[in-house]
Design a protein around this nucleic acid. Structure first.
Lengths: 114, 114
DNA sequence: AGCATTAGTATCTTTTAGCATACTATATAT
DNA sequence: ATATATAGTATGCTAAAAGATACTAATGCT
């Protein structure tokens, strides 16, 4: 477990949200998925925009540790590292899709009333 | 918006996770749902266990502000306050169910290998 | 008068998440 | 020899989330 491992996981929902609840985690997974399940570090960085290299690396390492993404290093210079979703990570995609749809709907609603 | 409103929402996924990504938010919604969509403050507190009244109140207020739960106050002494999911909140239940199932599966897997 | 009950507040401290900025390694191309 | 590209590290800082602990209001009950 990567984040918030200070105290015990209390249930499956808790377990899940510790893994994907970080500020950029869901988005990173979504971006990788959308780019045919392969994305390089630099591409990811550019897509996210406002993230420091430290945070991006840290987040990617946590996702990797939690078996949600794979990290493939090519023995090249300059370096090339590709990230992809694992099978386990892939299984979260429908969820992210639905939550995203829910979010989109709410955002539209807010625009109507506000 | 309640949490993380410092910078702009960048996409629907971001929007959604700001609303339900808090430490106890998903669980609170799930508990309310499971108890026939009505739960009092004290019950909630006992069910969550390790939460301070400050945190619980704050979390509930954020969920309310985000229109995910209703807060119904009875004019009684001692006080009685009931929380329930709004329609919008209800729409998240299938997803919470899905993620919970995913989490449960992963937890079982981990127990096998570890 | 004093106690129990419920849903909180108030204040302070600690912990965690995230940001800013500068730096590194190294093969290849010029 | 120097510049370029890529995927990061290192160090220090700020902001946000969360925790600990003590307290309150108001009424009915004894």
């Amino acid at each position: 477990m990567a984040k918030n491992n200070s105290d015990e996981v209390v249930c499956a929902l808790d377990y899940a949200f510790r893994r994907i609840g970080g500020k950029h985690k869901a988005r990173i997974m979504w971006y990788i998925f959308k780019k045919n399940n392969v994305l390089r570090y630099g591409e990811l960085k550019r897509m996210i925009g406002n993230i420091t290299p430290k945070m991006l690396t840290q987040t990617l390492r946590e996702l990797e540790e939690d078996k949600l993404i794979n990290r493939k290093v090519y023995a090249q210079v300059p370096p090339k590292v590709e990230y992809s979703l694992t099978q386990t990570g892939m299984e979260l995609i429908p969820f992210l899709d639905h939550v995203g749809a829910w979010g989109r709907k709410q955002m539209e609603k807010e625009n109507y009333t506000a």
